[in-house]
């Protein structure tokens, strides 16, 4: 499944500035692993040591927070839009 992933500003250093990348993945967990393969360092920013999505990182599949779907097991299909959004906006500019 090819899905598009929107990357928030603070993480674009890891995607060579790209605000959107395309990834092959059958579910959200796989998506994060494949993101890491393509853009080393991303997974540590998104997941804690146990591999769980960090509390203040929101991952949306077609505008629904995956916490309220199946979490990392949330299935993806072709054309799905995934957004990664820090829960608290802002930070230093």
């Amino acid at each position: 499944m090819s899905v598009s992933v929107r990357i928030p500003t603070p993480l674009r250093k890891l995607t060579d500035g790209a605000d959107e990348v395309n990834v092959e993945a059958a579910n959200v967990g796989e998506l994060i692993d494949n993101l890491e393969v393509a853009h080393a360092g991303l997974k540590a920013r998104l997941c804690d040591d146990a591999g769980e999505i960090r509390r203040f990182v929101n991952v949306y599949v077609n505008d629904e927070d995956v916490r309220f779907l199946e979490g990392r097991a949330t299935a993806l299909k072709d054309g799905d839009e995934v957004s990664i959004v820090p829960a608290i906006a802002g930070g230093r500019n």
């Binding site: 603070p10 920013r45 960090r54 608290i88």
Partner: peptide, 21 residues
């Protein structure tokens, strides 16, 4: 509050690494 990383006293509120408060 999440990952324990420390920052100097500045007008900032989000962890640059894990986005925690």
């Amino acid at each position: 509050r999440e990952c324990g990383q420390e920052y100097p006293i500045e007008p900032t509120h989000v962890c640059e690494f894990c986005f925690g408060p």
